[in-house]
Design a protein around this nucleic acid. Structure first.
Lengths: 152, 152
DNA sequence: ATGTCTGCAAAGCTTTTGCACTGAT
DNA sequence: ATCAGTGCAAAAGCTTTGCAGACAT
């Protein structure tokens, strides 16, 4: 599936969601969705704002925050708080579900996937009687590069 | 081990830390430590500030934030970001290590402990070559109470 | 005595809100 | 023609910072 097809598909998902919720299909909302899906990796609202200001489409911060909430609600993006006060976002469609490890020395973020996370999720859901909708798992530590540098 | 003994012990830990770092043993720092360890559960800086203002000891927000950083650094408290922008803190000494599940409907926070988290940690550390110092794991969902209410 | 720590207030940053205008339905 | 959505700017809320005075060493 190429970039164009993914764009078309997520637009369709978003479109269905908007209809279902009885909201309006504004050009801003789809422009933001495109911009989000053109990005790779993590980003924050301010970065997206600057980028869209400089590029073809102008949007306000208010609309960006509003649309982020919609995209989260329909599952097209996820929101992270990597220990800072700046929320980081990440697209999810056609992206393998994964968790993150952050190097506290250089700030590098890497991804991994371990099926045991879901096993734990199932156990916790059963024991505490929750309907779990999402999880967030982060490991923090020192990456091998930083370990070497510190020894020098 | 009673409350008094815990207070004495954590004061000693903090005292050693301050000496090792070449910092000063100010009354404010120990007053904040006491207050933190007198609390149960999670709290934010503003709550602590109000409480200390109303109680025997007056401290500034600046000192509170400063001291929180020290207490985190010496491992006497941990900092959480439960998806909001308000940092939540929690004491750690003599507290069983645990993770959290948050009800997205009523905001209730419950705790659980699953040994498989450490197994995942070990695997990730080995595969990606990190020295992992901490992790944060949160599940989000709907608790049984809220599920019942929504059906009414 | 020295220089770190404190308190206060101001500033900084991200996010939210109020309001008038715009545009999707 | 409605009224939800947008943009702008102001406000809000948590956290950090600058600076003068206080006090631990």
């Amino acid at each position: 599936m190429g970039c164009k097809e993914i764009q078309a598909t997520v637009r369709q998902i978003f479109s269905n969601y908007i209809e279902k919720k009885g909201l309006r299909k504004t050009p801003e909302r789809f422009a933001i969705l495109d911009e989000v899906y053109a990005r790779t990796g993590h980003f924050d609202v301010e970065t997206l704002y600057i980028q869209m200001k400089n590029a073809s489409y102008q949007v306000s911060r208010a609309t960006l925050y509003n649309t982020m909430d919609l995209l989260i609600d329909c599952g097209l993006i996820v929101k992270h708080q990597f220990g800072k006060n700046i929320a980081q976002f990440e697209k999810t469609y056609r992206c393998r579900q994964h968790d993150h490890i952050i190097c506290t020395s250089c700030g590098k973020v890497e991804e991994y996937c371990d099926p045991r996370v879901h096993e734990i999720e199932n156990t916790v859901a059963q024991v505490l009687d929750y309907t779990i909708t999402k999880h967030s798992l982060y490991f923090y530590g020192i990456c091998s590069d930083c370990r070497k540098k510190n020894k020098t």
